[in-house]
Structure formats: C-alpha cells, structure tokens
Nucleic acid binder design. Structure first.
Length: 435
RNA sequence: GUGGGCGUAGCUCAGUUGGCAGAGCGCUGGGUUGUGGCCCCGGAGGUCGAGGGUUCGAGUCCCUUCGCCCACCCCA
C-alpha cells in the first residue's frame, strides 16, 4: 500500500478545521494591526536560506531538504554534490518563513529607501529533515508575520502584543503561557560579546561537553541553551549579554520593556535566550505553554541585518512564527477544542419511489445555500434517520408518497421531534429561515 | 546521527508453555407495514506490516526488512 512520506501528515476532518481556524483568526487579528497576507514559494534558492538563516545553524547545515530536477539529479550524484551547479539550480524547500518573505521584499523593493514600513503575514508549510517526534514534523505549518522598515521599539512591543493576543484568541489562558524575552545586541556590540563567550568556553574546555566546544567555534551563544547540567553550571558565570550591550541596544531594550509594561504584558527576562537562527539582533522572544510538553509554540525577534544579507538596502525588520501542530497539541492538553463543529446540515430522507422528488428538493436546498445531505445507498428510512443523526443534521426533510401526492414535505426538527408540513415550493425558504 | 518502544478488524487494543484469530467501540440488518439517539437480537469485516527460516503446526521462536511512536540534538 502506498504511504505518506516520513514525518508528514494529512490534514483532514477536525485537524483541517483547526488549521483553517488558525488562519481565519490570524487573518482577522493581523488585519487589524495592518498586516497583509503574502505567500512565497515553498522552493527557494539555497543561498536565500544560507545567507539569511546562517551557515552555522543546524537548520542550514543538517535540516534543509535540497531539491533538484530529475534531469539534474544524476549529474549531482555523479559529481558527488551540488557545488558545481549554478546558484539558481541549487534549491531547497523552505525550513522557515522569514528568509523567503525578506527575499521577496528585496526583490520587489517593498520598502524603498525612506519608505513606509511594510507588514506581511503568512500561513504556510515548512520543511525540515529532522527525526519526527511529538510536535515535530518534517512538513509542518507555521503562521507568522514580518514587519519590515520599522526601527521603533514600539514595533517590537506591538509584535509581542499581537502574538499574545493571537494566542488568547486561539483559546489559550494567558496565565498558562510563559513569555521570555532578551536582547541579543547588534553589529556594534555582539561580535565582541561573541568573542568573549568563545574564549570563556575555551577557558573552561575541560568542564564542557563536546557539543559546547563545537558551539564555541560555530555559535558560542548557543552554549547557553545546552541541556547538560555541568555546562549550565559553567555558563552561569559566563559573561552576560545584558552587560555587554552597547548604549543603543540597551536603550532600545529598555524601551521595549517599557512598552510591554504599559500594555500589561507579563514577561520573564531570560539573558540566556538565544534564537537558533543567525539573523536575529536585539529583541528576541519565545512563548512556551506550561505542562504541554511540546516545546516552544512560538518565537521571533528583530533582524535588522537580514535585508542586507539578502542583498537589499539596510532595513530594520522583525517578526515571529508560531507552529500549528504544536499549538494544536498544546490546546488539546489544556482541554481547548480548536476543531470546531462541522457545519450544521439538513438531511433529505425519502422512500425509494420518491427518489426523484428528493433529488429535486436536495438540489433546491443546496442552491439556496443550505448544506444538504441525502441517501445514495438506497437504505431504509430508519437507516436514513440514523445517518441524519450521525451527521448532526438539525432538520430532516421527509419525502414519502403522502407528501409528494400533496406537494409538500415533512420537516422534522431532530432535537424537538416536531414535524411540520411545508409546500415543496416553499421548502428552501422555510429551511433557510429555520437554520 | 544516537537510544528506547510498538506494528493483530475501520478505531483502541487482548491473544497463556507454539495448537481452529478475539473483545470493546464503530459499521450493517432486524426488533418498529414511513422516523434517529437508549435497549435487545443477528451479520459483515483480518495477506496478524512485509520477506525468509525453525517446526507436524508460528500472531507467538529466530533472521532480514519496511513503517510508526517517544527521547536526545535543534527548533515552531
């Protein structure tokens, strides 16, 4: 039997309704904050991700699905890699949403020099070649937004505010959410800080795990994320980002916090919070659900250097993304239903001799916009009622010989058991009014 | 990449020292000559993930393989 690819899922039934609901709630909320929808290709040139996300990140080094046309694949295999291909022939499935949106912004010059900021949101599938586990898939879905051209700390705060509002509208109890924030510095202060952390780790090399030693060279800040207790203990004494921030970054961070305070947003400062994508600068944040066991359900931050990395003019930017599958699991663990009820419907039941009349009545109801179901298996009236019940039909229209002879239909209210007779030519109007 | 767990009916799972493949739910027919949910009675539905081996005999033991779940890493 054919089966789906490892780490992928089919979205259907309540699961699909939950995804659609996440998109619908987002569209309404983000619209109020001035965000327009965008959809970028699932396929981008590899360099778009390498430049944006960073060569040293796991996402780029280990998790991207590379893509070649069937014509190029033999060539790649024979020559032992894609290095000889032209840049435009090296493609990858997007592992995250920001790089593609920023590439589009550069390519279409969404933010001309001195122009107004552009605000975009998306809801798309992402792809990462990891081993699947709870809340982690190889094809998963993120809703995210990007705000390009705004340097104001108010934008950082508003980003966080709209994120928390989104969670609230999806049904999360704000008390169960833990928002952590930090500032990662910028091009002025981070390189020196990075070097300081690197030498700190190397000075304590004999106390740290191999992973952290590797991190020292690739991305020293990530050592703060190490789960190893010994490494954690050592890193307690490492230089702190907060002490190393330049005046501009410190001032920016302070203002962001003031805006958050003013908006009544609860947050925890975590000086070790380091987002795993290299493009982040200054403000970063992450949201977890207590006890859900699915990791972070959302995260993001500022990326003032990213537009340049993608070949654009210097343009500040920031954004975040949330993971649909994790939010779905987290809400489930909190007992919140995101799946919604199926649309209420009407069932048309009939006796075999009246099938033609039922056919016409069904069509008339549907043309009036009423979700209508009927029997297509020639089953007994009893079975048809059972089916109507299972589908959650509010009304059941019965067409038997008596009804058709009189030019009427019996309409039964499934909950109250009330039955009334309605002339066939008024059926659609009557049913529409009742729903 | 590393380490655990699991593949038996549509779903959730039992299956004893190797001896006729089971239950609950769901589906379906009837109990009701034209009426659902509850109840009662009947029925259908299985290459036991796949391939090979041991055996008189394998869901069960051995080998191989595919797949899924969970954890580490990293991340949404």
């Amino acid at each position: 039997m054919a089966q789906r690819v490892q780490g992928t899922e089919d979205l259907f039934g309540g699961y699909m309704r939950a995804w659609q609901r996440m998109c619908d709630v987002g569209r309404e909320l983000f619209g109020a904050y001035g965000f327009d929808a965008i959809e970028t290709p699932a396929l981008e040139q590899v360099d778009t991700f390498v430049h944006g996300i960073g060569e040293s990140t796991d996402v780029v080094r280990k998790e991207m699905f590379r893509v070649f046309s069937g014509a190029l694949l033999p060539e790649v295999l024979e020559r032992g890699g894609e290095g000889h291909l032209k840049p435009r022939q090296r493609m990858a499935m997007r592992p995250e949403g920001t790089a593609g949106v920023v590439r589009a912004a550069v390519e279409h010059n969404f933010v001309p020099q001195g122009g107004a900021p552009v605000k975009l949101w998306y809801a798309e599938a992402m792809f990462r070649g990891e081993r699947p586990q709870k809340g982690r898939l190889r094809q998963f879905h993120q809703v995210g937004l990007e705000w390009l051209g705004a340097e104001d700390p108010a934008a950082d705060a508003e980003c966080v505010i709209v994120l928390m509002e989104y969670f609230a509208r999806l049904g999360f109890d704000p008390a169960k959410l833990r928002l952590t924030i930090n500032s990662m510095g910028d091009a002025t202060c981070r390189p020196a800080y990075r070097a300081a952390v690197r030498s700190f780790i190397l000075d304590h090399a004999d106390e740290m795990c191999d992973d952290c030693l590797e991190r020292a060279e690739l991305n020293p800040l990530r050592a703060f994320d190490c789960k190893n207790d010994r490494c954690r203990a050592v890193m307690e004494d490492a230089p702190k980002l907060g002490d190393a921030l330049c005046d501009d970054c410190r001032s920016h961070y302070e203002q962001v916090k003031r805006y958050l305070d003013a908006a009544g947003i609860a947050y925890v400062e975590d000086p070790t919070l380091v987002r795993g994508l290299d493009y982040y600068t200054r403000t970063v944040f992450e949201v977890e659900v207590e006890g859900a066991g699915v990791g972070a359900i959302g995260g993001g931050g500022r990326y003032d250097g990213l537009m340049e990395l993608e070949g654009g003019k210097p343009t500040p930017g920031l954004g975040w993304a949330v993971g649909f599958e994790r939010i779905y699991l987290a809400l489930q663990s909190l007992g919140v239903d995101l799946t919604g009820e199926g649309d209420s419907c009407v069932y048309v039941a009939c006796m075999p001799e009246q099938r033609a009349a039922a056919f016409s009545a069904t069509l008339a109801l549907r043309q009036a916009g009423v979700r209508t179901e009927a029997d297509y298996q020639g089953r007994s009236l009893k079975a048809q009622f059972k089916q109507a019940n299972r589908l959650g039909a509010r009304l059941c229209v019965v067409l038997g010989s008596d009804e058709v002879a009189q030019g009427v239909a019996t309409v039964r209210d499934m909950a109250s058991h009330e039955q009334v007779q309605v002339p066939l030519d008024e059926l659609a109007a009557y049913v529409s009014a009742r729903l």
